[in-house]
Design a protein around this nucleic acid. Structure first.
Lengths: 156, 156
DNA sequence: ATTGTTGCAAATATTTTGCATCAAT
DNA sequence: ATTGATGCAAAATATTTGCAACAAT
């Protein structure tokens, strides 16, 4: 993405943005269905492209890392992970689970909302040693965005 | 899954388990590639089926919820989520981010491992009010497994 | 004119499933 | 014999992309 690109707020982009807002953490196809009621001609490609664009411009956020693949963990005990936003590598965090802090937080939440907590997941996002070493051209841009060699990359 | 089912530890299942262990949070296709070097006849279907089975038996863990779809969030500020392991609904946690606690933990980790932290993601897994109300037949089985009407369901 | 965006369709990527066969109890 | 697992191929699901046409600067 060139940095002097002039984005336009088209009707489609506007409606997609509104539907992300009014839905509750919707998936792309949920957004597509909602948008289609207002703009029957819209295509799935437009929805995906706009969700990407809106996320990279910071209007919305993707809730998972971009690589859409399940990962598997041999360690079944409660523990936390680090994810490299450049190479997608996942490592264990060698830090004790904050069960007390987080479970208590969970219980407090459960009492407030009647949401029953069975566990939690904590993940730190950043750059693994190899990637921060190899690539010197990372820099922070705003909050939650990192620029890499002229392109913008979101961590979520 | 019937509860009196007799699982067998086949050669394929054994090798898949070993390769999950020796890899670093591998994806299904990474496991497939590794296993294929030892069992050239193996098929992708066998790998996926065994990863499911091994996870439901508690030998390994899936690292994300089962639904393989990206979700989008209109709220770009740091905040946490609850995920219902029954209906997959995602809601905001109306609790202040623990930036101090977690960012400090992150910095400590960064110093230890040279992993550069840019942010974190915290998610509570459980049952939303509707699902815990509707379904009385949930019960905890071991750690991280929940039984629902005769079936076993993992939360990750 | 040039650049950005769209709709459509085709392609890619990921995961699941039906089924005949094989293996273990 | 019966149940469980495999390999293969097809299907299902999720996402991305090429391209001609259209729209805004």
């Amino acid at each position: 993405m060139k940095s002097d690109r002039k984005y336009r707020m088209t009707r489609q982009r506007q409606v997609i943005l509104e539907e992300v807002k009014s839905g509750c953490h919707p998936t792309a196809d949920q957004i597509y269905e909602r948008v289609r009621k207002r703009l029957p001609q819209i295509s799935m490609g437009t929805v995906y492209r706009n969700l990407d664009t809106l996320a990279s411009l910071g209007f919305i956020r993707k809730m998972q890392p971009d690589h859409p693949q399940m990962r598997f963990d041999f360690n079944t005990k409660e523990h936390y992970h680090t994810t490299c936003m450049n190479c997608n590598r996942v490592d264990d965090m060698h830090i004790e689970p904050m069960d007390d802090t987080l479970e208590n937080l969970g219980k407090a939440l459960g009492k407030l909302t009647k949401f029953g907590i069975f566990g939690h997941r904590l993940e730190f996002i950043g750059l693994c040693p190899e990637c921060s070493e190899q690539e010197k051209e990372f820099s922070l841009k705003g909050k939650n965005q990192i620029v890499k060699k002229g392109g913008v990359k979101l961590w979520n």
